[in-house]
Nucleic acid binder design. Structure first.
Length: 326
DNA sequence: GATCCAATAT
DNA sequence: CATATTGGAT
Protein backbone atom coordinates (compact mmCIF):
# COMPACT_ATOMS: atom_id res chain seq x y z
CA UNK A 1 0.00 0.00 0.00
CA UNK A 2 1.43 3.13 0.94
CA UNK A 3 4.69 1.59 1.40
CA UNK A 4 4.61 0.32 -2.03
CA UNK A 5 3.94 3.65 -3.38
CA UNK A 6 6.76 5.09 -1.59
CA UNK A 7 8.92 2.34 -2.73
CA UNK A 8 8.05 3.17 -6.24
CA UNK A 9 8.69 6.70 -5.60
CA UNK A 10 12.05 5.84 -4.53
CA UNK A 11 12.70 3.61 -7.39
CA UNK A 12 11.71 6.24 -9.81
CA UNK A 13 13.88 8.55 -7.99
CA UNK A 14 16.89 6.55 -8.63
CA UNK A 15 16.03 6.15 -12.18
CA UNK A 16 15.99 9.77 -12.65
CA UNK A 17 19.43 10.16 -11.43
CA UNK A 18 21.80 11.38 -13.98
CA UNK A 19 24.39 9.11 -15.15
CA UNK A 20 27.97 9.73 -14.42
CA UNK A 21 28.62 10.84 -17.86
CA UNK A 22 26.19 13.57 -17.55
CA UNK A 23 27.90 14.75 -14.55
CA UNK A 24 29.57 17.98 -14.46
CA UNK A 25 30.36 18.71 -17.95
CA UNK A 26 30.63 22.33 -18.27
CA UNK A 27 29.94 24.51 -15.47
CA UNK A 28 32.44 26.71 -14.08
CA UNK A 29 34.12 27.20 -17.25
CA UNK A 30 31.79 29.95 -17.82
CA UNK A 31 32.08 31.67 -14.60
CA UNK A 32 33.73 34.88 -14.90
CA UNK A 33 35.64 36.42 -12.19
CA UNK A 34 33.27 39.23 -12.28
CA UNK A 35 30.46 36.99 -11.63
CA UNK A 36 32.23 35.28 -8.90
CA UNK A 37 33.07 38.44 -7.21
CA UNK A 38 29.74 39.78 -7.87
CA UNK A 39 28.09 37.27 -5.75
CA UNK A 40 28.17 38.62 -2.41
CA UNK A 41 26.20 36.08 -0.72
CA UNK A 42 25.83 37.10 2.80
CA UNK A 43 24.02 34.07 3.86
CA UNK A 44 25.89 31.89 6.11
CA UNK A 45 25.15 28.79 4.31
CA UNK A 46 28.06 26.58 4.61
CA UNK A 47 29.80 25.44 1.66
CA UNK A 48 32.78 23.58 2.67
CA UNK A 49 32.73 22.28 -0.71
CA UNK A 50 35.66 20.06 -0.65
CA UNK A 51 35.48 19.97 -4.25
CA UNK A 52 35.82 16.59 -5.62
CA UNK A 53 39.01 15.74 -7.11
CA UNK A 54 38.13 17.24 -10.26
CA UNK A 55 40.53 17.17 -12.92
CA UNK A 56 42.66 20.04 -13.21
CA UNK A 57 39.68 22.12 -13.47
CA UNK A 58 39.31 24.49 -10.76
CA UNK A 59 37.29 24.09 -7.92
CA UNK A 60 33.88 24.27 -8.40
CA UNK A 61 32.27 27.38 -8.77
CA UNK A 62 31.92 27.60 -5.28
CA UNK A 63 31.40 31.08 -5.54
CA UNK A 64 31.86 31.58 -2.09
CA UNK A 65 31.60 35.09 -1.67
CA UNK A 66 34.12 35.54 0.81
CA UNK A 67 33.64 38.81 2.26
CA UNK A 68 36.08 40.58 0.25
CA UNK A 69 38.49 42.00 2.60
CA UNK A 70 39.72 45.27 1.48
CA UNK A 71 42.96 43.84 0.60
CA UNK A 72 41.88 41.17 -1.57
CA UNK A 73 41.97 40.78 -5.19
CA UNK A 74 40.00 38.62 -7.34
CA UNK A 75 41.37 35.22 -7.10
CA UNK A 76 43.29 34.23 -10.04
CA UNK A 77 40.56 32.35 -11.52
CA UNK A 78 42.14 31.26 -14.61
CA UNK A 79 41.05 33.01 -17.61
CA UNK A 80 37.51 32.83 -18.24
CA UNK A 81 35.47 34.00 -20.99
CA UNK A 82 34.01 37.23 -20.34
CA UNK A 83 30.60 38.09 -21.15
CA UNK A 84 27.80 37.21 -18.98
CA UNK A 85 26.34 40.41 -18.55
CA UNK A 86 26.27 40.92 -15.17
CA UNK A 87 24.98 43.95 -15.43
CA UNK A 88 25.87 46.71 -16.65
CA UNK A 89 27.90 47.84 -14.34
CA UNK A 90 29.68 50.43 -14.96
CA UNK A 91 29.01 51.90 -17.49
CA UNK A 92 30.51 51.07 -19.85
CA UNK A 93 32.98 49.81 -19.99
CA UNK A 94 33.38 47.40 -21.47
CA UNK A 95 36.23 46.27 -21.57
CA UNK A 96 37.44 45.15 -18.96
CA UNK A 97 35.92 45.46 -16.26
CA UNK A 98 37.74 47.47 -14.29
CA UNK A 99 36.46 48.46 -11.14
CA UNK A 100 36.87 45.73 -8.93
CA UNK A 101 35.17 46.87 -5.89
CA UNK A 102 33.06 44.08 -4.97
CA UNK A 103 30.37 46.21 -4.74
CA UNK A 104 28.30 45.42 -1.97
CA UNK A 105 25.59 47.16 -3.71
CA UNK A 106 25.37 44.59 -6.33
CA UNK A 107 22.11 43.07 -6.88
CA UNK A 108 21.93 39.52 -7.77
CA UNK A 109 20.31 38.53 -10.94
CA UNK A 110 16.94 37.07 -10.76
CA UNK A 111 16.97 33.53 -9.77
CA UNK A 112 15.60 31.27 -12.35
CA UNK A 113 13.97 28.20 -11.10
CA UNK A 114 15.13 25.58 -13.41
CA UNK A 115 13.57 22.20 -13.27
CA UNK A 116 16.51 21.01 -11.37
CA UNK A 117 16.20 23.58 -8.74
CA UNK A 118 12.52 23.16 -8.63
CA UNK A 119 12.91 19.52 -8.16
CA UNK A 120 15.11 20.03 -5.21
CA UNK A 121 12.58 22.38 -3.93
CA UNK A 122 9.72 19.99 -4.31
CA UNK A 123 11.62 17.18 -2.79
CA UNK A 124 12.52 19.29 0.12
CA UNK A 125 8.97 20.31 0.64
CA UNK A 126 7.83 16.80 0.29
CA UNK A 127 10.21 15.56 2.82
CA UNK A 128 9.51 18.26 5.20
CA UNK A 129 5.83 17.97 5.00
CA UNK A 130 3.61 20.85 4.47
CA UNK A 131 3.85 21.71 8.04
CA UNK A 132 7.48 22.25 8.25
CA UNK A 133 7.83 23.40 4.79
CA UNK A 134 8.50 26.97 5.35
CA UNK A 135 10.98 28.96 3.46
CA UNK A 136 13.76 28.82 5.88
CA UNK A 137 13.62 25.13 6.34
CA UNK A 138 13.21 24.43 2.73
CA UNK A 139 16.10 26.58 1.96
CA UNK A 140 18.23 24.75 4.42
CA UNK A 141 17.32 21.40 3.13
CA UNK A 142 17.94 22.39 -0.35
CA UNK A 143 21.41 23.34 0.48
CA UNK A 144 21.83 25.39 -2.53
CA UNK A 145 24.47 27.86 -2.09
CA UNK A 146 23.36 31.30 -2.79
CA UNK A 147 19.74 30.57 -2.50
CA UNK A 148 18.06 32.95 -0.21
CA UNK A 149 15.10 32.59 1.94
CA UNK A 150 13.33 35.14 -0.12
CA UNK A 151 13.94 33.16 -3.20
CA UNK A 152 12.39 30.16 -1.69
CA UNK A 153 9.57 32.06 -0.18
CA UNK A 154 8.64 33.52 -3.43
CA UNK A 155 8.73 30.25 -5.16
CA UNK A 156 6.87 28.59 -2.39
CA UNK A 157 4.13 31.05 -2.74
CA UNK A 158 3.72 30.18 -6.29
CA UNK A 159 3.99 26.54 -5.59
CA UNK A 160 1.21 26.70 -3.12
CA UNK A 161 -0.96 28.41 -5.58
CA UNK A 162 -0.23 25.71 -8.00
CA UNK A 163 -1.17 23.02 -5.57
CA UNK A 164 -4.30 24.80 -4.69
CA UNK A 165 -5.26 25.14 -8.23
CA UNK A 166 -4.78 21.54 -8.68
CA UNK A 167 -6.96 20.64 -5.84
CA UNK A 168 -9.95 22.15 -7.33
CA UNK A 169 -9.21 20.65 -10.56
CA UNK A 170 -9.62 17.11 -10.69
CA UNK A 171 -10.98 16.21 -13.82
CA UNK A 172 -12.67 18.83 -15.51
CA UNK A 173 -10.94 20.42 -17.98
CA UNK A 174 -11.28 23.72 -18.19
CA UNK A 175 -10.00 24.43 -21.20
CA UNK A 176 -6.54 24.20 -21.45
CA UNK A 177 -5.33 21.23 -22.94
CA UNK A 178 -8.40 19.53 -22.76
CA UNK A 179 -7.26 16.23 -22.53
CA UNK A 180 -6.82 14.77 -19.38
CA UNK A 181 -4.29 12.25 -19.42
CA UNK A 182 -4.25 11.97 -15.81
CA UNK A 183 -5.36 13.70 -12.81
CA UNK A 184 -3.04 16.47 -13.06
CA UNK A 185 -1.72 16.37 -16.45
CA UNK A 186 -4.51 18.53 -17.49
CA UNK A 187 -2.63 21.45 -16.42
CA UNK A 188 -0.36 22.11 -19.18
CA UNK A 189 -0.91 25.69 -19.28
CA UNK A 190 2.19 27.54 -19.86
CA UNK A 191 2.06 28.59 -16.35
CA UNK A 192 2.49 25.30 -14.82
CA UNK A 193 5.11 24.03 -17.01
CA UNK A 194 7.50 23.97 -14.28
CA UNK A 195 5.21 22.62 -11.70
CA UNK A 196 3.32 20.33 -13.87
CA UNK A 197 6.39 18.73 -14.95
CA UNK A 198 7.51 17.93 -11.61
CA UNK A 199 6.00 15.29 -9.68
CA UNK A 200 3.84 16.51 -7.01
CA UNK A 201 3.90 14.39 -4.01
CA UNK A 202 0.51 13.05 -3.58
CA UNK A 203 0.12 13.75 0.01
CA UNK A 204 0.25 17.32 -0.85
CA UNK A 205 -3.06 17.53 -2.37
CA UNK A 206 -5.97 17.29 -0.20
CA UNK A 207 -3.91 17.07 2.78
CA UNK A 208 -4.21 19.28 5.67
CA UNK A 209 -2.57 19.31 8.95
CA UNK A 210 -1.46 16.18 10.48
CA UNK A 211 1.52 14.11 11.02
CA UNK A 212 3.60 13.63 8.08
CA UNK A 213 3.52 10.42 6.29
CA UNK A 214 7.15 10.02 6.59
CA UNK A 215 9.25 9.65 3.65
CA UNK A 216 11.49 6.84 3.05
CA UNK A 217 14.46 7.14 5.10
CA UNK A 218 17.48 8.10 3.57
CA UNK A 219 20.48 6.58 4.85
CA UNK A 220 22.72 9.32 5.39
CA UNK A 221 25.38 8.37 3.20
CA UNK A 222 28.49 9.46 4.66
CA UNK A 223 29.82 9.51 1.33
CA UNK A 224 31.88 12.10 0.10
CA UNK A 225 30.82 15.24 -1.21
CA UNK A 226 28.84 15.88 -4.02
CA UNK A 227 29.09 18.96 -5.74
CA UNK A 228 27.20 21.52 -4.01
CA UNK A 229 24.85 23.29 -6.12
CA UNK A 230 25.28 26.89 -6.19
CA UNK A 231 22.79 29.32 -7.20
CA UNK A 232 25.50 30.92 -9.07
CA UNK A 233 25.85 27.93 -11.20
CA UNK A 234 22.31 28.16 -12.02
CA UNK A 235 22.55 31.77 -12.47
CA UNK A 236 25.15 31.48 -15.00
CA UNK A 237 23.03 29.41 -17.14
CA UNK A 238 20.07 31.26 -16.11
CA UNK A 239 21.42 34.43 -17.25
CA UNK A 240 22.20 33.10 -20.54
CA UNK A 241 18.91 31.52 -20.90
CA UNK A 242 17.01 34.41 -19.65
CA UNK A 243 18.80 36.68 -21.87
CA UNK A 244 18.29 34.63 -24.84
CA UNK A 245 14.74 34.07 -24.13
CA UNK A 246 14.12 37.66 -23.88
CA UNK A 247 15.98 38.64 -26.87
CA UNK A 248 15.52 35.77 -29.11
CA UNK A 249 12.39 33.94 -29.34
CA UNK A 250 13.93 30.66 -28.98
CA UNK A 251 17.27 29.31 -28.74
CA UNK A 252 19.23 28.45 -31.62
CA UNK A 253 18.26 25.00 -31.51
CA UNK A 254 18.57 23.28 -34.68
CA UNK A 255 15.30 22.02 -35.53
CA UNK A 256 15.20 18.58 -35.98
CA UNK A 257 17.88 17.16 -34.33
CA UNK A 258 20.72 19.01 -33.54
CA UNK A 259 20.92 18.97 -30.00
CA UNK A 260 23.54 21.31 -29.28
CA UNK A 261 22.41 22.13 -25.93
CA UNK A 262 22.80 19.85 -23.22
CA UNK A 263 23.78 21.25 -20.11
CA UNK A 264 23.80 18.66 -17.75
CA UNK A 265 25.83 20.48 -15.41
CA UNK A 266 24.93 20.60 -11.86
CA UNK A 267 25.74 17.20 -11.31
CA UNK A 268 26.07 15.06 -8.48
CA UNK A 269 29.10 13.13 -7.98
CA UNK A 270 29.68 9.62 -7.18
CA UNK A 271 29.26 7.32 -9.94
CA UNK A 272 29.72 4.24 -7.94
CA UNK A 273 27.82 1.77 -9.90
CA UNK A 274 25.60 -0.47 -8.08
CA UNK A 275 25.29 1.60 -5.08
CA UNK A 276 22.47 3.69 -4.15
CA UNK A 277 22.91 7.01 -5.47
CA UNK A 278 22.09 9.01 -2.51
CA UNK A 279 24.29 11.70 -1.56
CA UNK A 280 24.58 13.17 1.73
CA UNK A 281 23.40 16.56 2.32
CA UNK A 282 25.97 18.75 1.35
CA UNK A 283 26.16 20.80 4.30
CA UNK A 284 27.96 18.38 6.33
CA UNK A 285 28.73 20.74 9.02
CA UNK A 286 25.47 22.34 8.84
CA UNK A 287 22.81 19.83 8.80
CA UNK A 288 19.55 21.40 9.22
CA UNK A 289 18.32 21.41 12.69
CA UNK A 290 15.87 18.72 13.25
CA UNK A 291 12.53 20.28 13.25
CA UNK A 292 10.19 19.39 16.02
CA UNK A 293 8.76 16.44 14.38
CA UNK A 294 10.95 16.35 11.51
CA UNK A 295 10.97 13.61 9.07
CA UNK A 296 13.31 11.04 10.20
CA UNK A 297 15.87 11.61 7.65
CA UNK A 298 17.43 14.90 7.82
CA UNK A 299 19.10 14.35 4.63
CA UNK A 300 17.06 13.34 1.82
CA UNK A 301 19.07 14.63 -0.89
CA UNK A 302 18.25 14.16 -4.36
CA UNK A 303 19.42 14.40 -7.77
CA UNK A 304 19.67 16.82 -10.43
CA UNK A 305 18.95 16.14 -13.89
CA UNK A 306 20.24 17.29 -17.07
CA UNK A 307 17.95 19.52 -18.76
CA UNK A 308 18.33 18.58 -22.21
CA UNK A 309 15.40 17.03 -23.61
CA UNK A 310 13.74 18.38 -26.48
CA UNK A 311 11.62 15.84 -27.72
CA UNK A 312 11.50 16.65 -31.04
CA UNK A 313 9.10 19.10 -31.91
CA UNK A 314 8.21 20.77 -28.81
CA UNK A 315 9.35 24.24 -28.79
CA UNK A 316 9.25 24.86 -25.14
CA UNK A 317 11.86 26.72 -23.41
CA UNK A 318 15.04 25.05 -23.33
CA UNK A 319 15.27 23.69 -20.00
CA UNK A 320 11.95 22.28 -19.91
CA UNK A 321 11.49 19.19 -18.17
CA UNK A 322 13.04 15.97 -18.56
CA UNK A 323 11.71 13.72 -16.08
CA UNK A 324 10.29 11.14 -18.07
CA UNK A 325 7.60 10.29 -15.81
CA UNK A 326 5.92 7.12 -16.36
C1' DG B 1 13.58 40.47 16.15
C1' DA B 2 12.81 36.92 12.98
C1' DT B 3 10.18 34.84 9.66
C1' DC B 4 5.87 33.72 7.38
C1' DC B 5 2.58 34.93 4.24
C1' DA B 6 -0.02 37.49 0.99
C1' DA B 7 0.00 41.32 -1.89
C1' DT B 8 2.23 44.14 -4.89
C1' DA B 9 5.95 45.81 -7.89
C1' DT B 10 9.35 45.12 -11.39
C1' DC C 1 4.69 35.36 -16.61
C1' DA C 2 8.34 34.74 -13.25
C1' DT C 3 10.63 36.78 -9.57
C1' DA C 4 11.58 40.43 -6.23
C1' DT C 5 10.19 43.43 -2.88
C1' DT C 6 7.19 45.21 0.48
C1' DG C 7 3.87 45.28 4.34
C1' DG C 8 1.15 43.31 7.76
C1' DA C 9 0.65 39.62 11.00
C1' DT C 10 2.47 36.16 14.03
Amino acid sequence: MREEEEANWFARWEEQLPSPEELMPLSQTLITPDLALAFDIPTVRSNPNPNPSLHHHHPAPSLHPPPPPPSSQPPPDFDSPDHLTTASSGGGAGGGGAGEEPARTLKRPRLVWTPQLHKRFVDAVAHLGIKNAVPKTIMQLMSVDGLTRENVASHLQKYRLYLKRMQGLSSSGGGAGGGAGGPISAADAATDQLFASSSVPHHFLGRGPGPEPYMPFVPVAALQHHQQITAAMQQQHQQQQYYQQRHMGHFGSPTGGGEGYDHGFLARTMPQPGMHRMVGPVAVGLVPPPPPSAPSAASYVEDLESGSRRGGGERRMLTLFPTGED
